[in-house]
Write a protein that binds this DNA or RNA. Structure first.
Lengths: 232, 232
DNA sequence: CGGCCACCCACGCCGGCCGGTGCGACTGCT
DNA sequence: AGCAGTCGCACCGGCCGGCGTGGGTGGCCG
């Protein structure tokens, strides 16, 4: 696992530091360059400078602050990632606001660290990301994990699935069809029954699901996760 | 931050080890009990035993394998969490399969570590979880982060949002109302316009969104994330 | 065994809502 | 003025949703 970093300093990991505060950059440079397998090859003081520095120096990893003048780190991250051979990005921030975290990860960041991360762990995180993995601060991890747990206990989803219990097999099939936006005639053709029959099933669905529309029925179908193959 | 664990061993963190392999348990016990702020108070060899042990010994943290006979770790985790005062759970596994990770986190686990985690980091992870945070192995973190990034590039969502670009303000309002399952008359009352006007807006939505039904329109609204307040 | 009940599935008729079309009024821009 | 874009409304055909009804199946009890 860690043999690649200890065996030989064949090719150090090239870093780009991006922060509007020169002192912060100096501190980071101090910490990171003390590791012999890491090398700070450039610095930038805002997002647009970071874009230029990435193009100019081709770093392996970018450590970037979130809040910066001119262009913030999140939009810069979104610009950097995506292209082939793009560097991995580690976001650094003082505050672990939810929106920052989610936006950063959706922008393609592979790391999200708080600035109070101890030097040893910071270096470790850089190495982890350099190895193609991801690293988050514990509080950030907690947010992410909590977000997942909350999704499982999503009240809307649970309520919806609860209601599905009392549906018959046939009704569930019709429910799925309604959720796809099919008309009654379409459903009849697809499930081999008269359109009139489809209507009764839909009627039962309406009463059983406390819906007044077929639209609301479709919504319940989606909320229950019926429309998404179980790869979620 | 870490003062509580280094200042005084006032009250060590109580651990429960759950694994069907006695050797694995012995190894874990060896590693963990070497830290003076940690104390292994019980062991169990499968999920149902784990439930009993939790009730009997009230541990602070449960370290549990995923694959076990009788009752696997995931269902046991789902049983343990949820009640007030329940211990935090760290899942241990040899393989970092996607389904394991997601199920474990949705079951309320606060940690997910691979068994090749070095002893030092294992102890650190336990302390982190004891502090109320979460800790994952780097590869697991990568999966989770990748899942989030993939969600941002969700083709259905992007396609749906793309289509929303060419909608007018008013149409978007109507779209949201349709997505809630309201009838045209309801929408008219809510947006202060005639039902006939609502119909024209819905018609435009049908053509602009390539839909044949209002149900499909509602689905697009949901896929685009219009129906979920921006807390996602 | 026969009767009964509960459940699921199936169908047809009717009123009301939806969706398509045509049209007019207002605004802002060139 | 001309024009594009948006929002507003009214009429018509077709689909949806509500209601009543019947046939088929499986379980329970006398």
């Amino acid at each position: 696992m860690n043999e690649s970093s200890t065996s030989a300093p064949a090719r150090p990991t090239r870093l780009l530091l991006v922060d509007d505060d020169a002192l912060v950059r100096a501190g980071l440079r101090m910490i990171l360059s003390s590791a012999e397998d890491l090398e700070v090859v450039a610095e930038a003081s805002n997002g647009s400078e970071a874009l230029e520095a990435v193009a100019a120096h081709r770093p392996d990893i970018v450590l970037m602050d979130v809040r910066m003048p001119v262009m913030d780190g999140l939009t810069a991250a979104a610009q950097i990632t995506g292209r082939p051979g793009a560097p991995s990005i580690i976001m650094l921030t003082t505050f672990d606001l939810d929106e920052y975290v989610f936006q950063a990860l959706q922008a393609g960041a592979m790391g999200f660290l708080l600035k109070d991360t101890p030097p040893r762990e910071l270096v470790g995180a850089v190495r982890v990301v350099a190895a193609g993995e991801a690293m988050l601060s514990p509080t950030v991890t907690r947010r992410l994990v909590g977000h997942f747990a909350a999704d499982a206990v999503n009240p809307r989803r649970q309520k919806a699935q609860e209601r599905l219990r009392l549906l018959t097999e046939r009704e569930t099939e019709v429910l799925a069809a309604v959720g796809r936006g099919l008309s009654n005639a379409d459903i009849g053709r697809e499930l081999y029954m008269s359109e009139a029959t489809v209507k009764t099933h839909v009627s039962r669905l309406l009463t059983k699901l406390d819906a007044t529309n077929r639209v609301q029925v479709a919504i319940v179908a989606h909320d229950a996760g019926l429309m998404t193959d179980p790869a979620s």
